[in-house]
Write a protein that binds this DNA or RNA. Structure first.
Lengths: 346, 346
DNA sequence: CCCATCTGAGAAAACCTTTTCCCAACCCTT
DNA sequence: AAGGGTTGGGAAAAGGTTTTCTCAGATGGG
């Protein structure tokens, strides 16, 4: 027939355990046991069944297994971070941690839409997910959907957990400490802090840590400058810090990499050299920004991928019935040194 | 008991159709038919069953349904774009298009790892996904995994399709046209093109379209400058374009927004005004970059979210047995006007 | 030679839902 | 009152796998 080539592809039907059993001349029960290493039979029988299964390309139907075991080996991942700067590494971490255990991840983008969130949660519950990971773009905000009385365990990663639930977030205070202490080691003494809007919880956490470290070292504490998360605000902050008559900072710790970028650009425009005159550290370690600044930006990395990994593992242990301590667990940040701070003094 | 509060939460068992049937005093068959609007029974019976189901909070077990219908209402989404600039909007589009049809999406991050890809594909097949969407960070490269002889339909989005498969990509030539023609409408005549590495297919597609438009309008064609996708390359390119003795461009069409950013910064450093002296257009419409340039960058948007949506719908119609025309379908780009090109002449 | 034990393997139930087929009762017509 | 059609609802199979129970035959001990 000429038209054969134009036909839609025919999709082969998967081979079932029953077919394997028939081909090997045993019952399905025996076949199942042979493949799972259960039951008793001669080594010869077991091997024959296995060989038959291999030859036929048998793969057990997960749906049937899940139905029986009451365990689907799937989890749901809820996020409202469309932009993805934070949630993508996190999602990759979750997926990586789980794929090796045979667990697949449902991606649910809920935006900030309650209806969409409800829809996704119901779809997942209907599909009998073993658990749910909730993640967001802000540590201090809830997702637009209530996960408090679900019939599966929930882990919160990088978003605000419900009371009594398990939550994993980055240790922002620790990260800020890392930055300021790095400056101190390099001999910087007049350290300023430029951060985002005061409406964000992390802004205060980081600012408090900044103040604490300076106080511990009996150094002058400049009032943190709070504004936006943007480059433009970085420019503006430089004008405030370096435009006056007073003593000028020799280091600026920024609330994110975009601010830091604005700061570095503004400093260059004023003829102030980075890192020679002023050191700059950012936050987030958003490589595309950190590597494009001149000089490349030293920054704090929140280890989001490993946060995702930990969240995946935490959920799995909840699913397996091992209770996890409720409350928020903070995971350490990491300092990534590039060239915006200079070398330690001899 | 005092320790009650400390016990792990007990997760309620889902209610089954059987329980609904018993509660309503009918058989499971009748209950099923009542809830699905099938079969014949008195309106009173049907309503009573529905009410019982509602009261008990019954939700059908998708796994059981899938097993029977041979249709799982799940699809797999393969990506190797860890960075996520391209794949996240795409994923969001896919998810959005499908959630309303009750279809959930498995997220599979395969990096560039064949083993990981194999693992994910097998896991999905075992879970009886109805189809797979393959997406990548480069239009002209394959994913590191063979999807050509699967037993489910596959749609390729923003990555190179296997021969005979269905693929959706952005119309890069059309996008380039949009940019150059916008310059022409604004009265620009000496239009340069600065793009990424020659190893990328899109670089040539866009460059060819650039040349074609200029030729059609009998304008001088500068040889496109190919380099990197980075800001640094944008700087460098400005040195080449504006450092010599020859006639200088009054417009630069850039291969992506980062290059455009570098170009704009370099122009400003030379005292050349944007948009007064030179207009600049980028590609990708990566908002975080496009809005941070001074002035904000006019750019070409590839409509990735709607590309994802289309991919989702295309896969669904394949799953439903409606054959789709194989080959590559190109979706139009969109010009997003900001302030880097100026206004049309009076 | 008889009983107890062990061995290898199969039958059947279970997981939950959908769908086909079937049956009893009722209504209407002649 | 017999025959035919309709109505309301149930029984059972199917989907693919796992697990428990059962059982026939073989082996060993006394």
């Amino acid at each position: 027939m000429v038209s054969d080539a134009e036909q839609a592809p025919v999709f082969a039907k998967p081979v079932t355990l029953r077919e394997v059993a028939v081909a090997a001349g045993v019952s399905v029960a025996t076949a199942s046991k042979a493949l799972n290493g259960q039951g008793r039979m001669t080594a010869e029988t077991r091997e024959r069944i296995r060989e038959t299964a291999r030859l036929l390309g048998f793969r057990p139907n997960s749906l049937a297994q899940s139905l029986l075991r009451r365990r689907s080996f799937t989890v749901g991942l809820l996020t409202n971070d469309t932009y993805g700067r934070f949630s993508l590494p996190l999602m990759a971490g979750v997926s990586d941690a789980l794929v090796d255990k045979g667990v697949s991840v449902f991606l649910c983008n809920v935006e900030d839409d309650t209806r969409l969130g409800q829809l996704h949660v119901e779809a997942m519950l209907d599909k009998r997910v073993d658990g749910i990971i909730a993640t967001g773009k802000r540590i201090d905000r809830h997702l637009p959907v209530d996960l408090s009385n679900l019939r599966v365990p929930v882990v919160y990663a990088f978003t605000r957990p419900d009371p009594g639930a398990v939550g994993l977030v980055s240790d922002d205070a620790g990260g800020a400490r890392l930055a300021v202490e790095h400056f101190l080691r390099l001999g910087r003494r007049r350290i300023a802090h430029v951060s985002g809007p005061p409406g964000f919880g992390v802004v205060h956490e980081r600012a408090d840590a900044y103040r604490a470290v300076l106080q511990e070292n009996n150094l002058p504490i400049g009032e943190p400058l709070l504004g936006q998360w943007s480059e433009a605000w970085g420019h503006e902050a430089v004008a405030k810090l370096f435009g006056g008559m007073g003593e000028r900072p020799d280091a600026v710790f920024c609330g994110n990499d975009q601010i830091a970028r604005g700061v570095i650009d503004a400093l260059r425009e004023r003829g102030i050299r980075v890192p020679d005159d002023v050191g700059v550290i950012g936050f987030d370690n958003w490589e595309i920004v950190a590597e494009a600044t001149r000089p490349p930006l030293t920054s704090i990395d929140m280890n989001l991928e490993s946060l995702g990994r930990e969240a995946g593992l935490a959920l799995l242990s909840l699913v397996d019935g091992r209770p996890a301590a409720p409350g928020i667990r903070k995971l350490p940040c990491r300092l990534v040194v590039r060239q915006s701070c200079g070398s330690p003094p001899e």
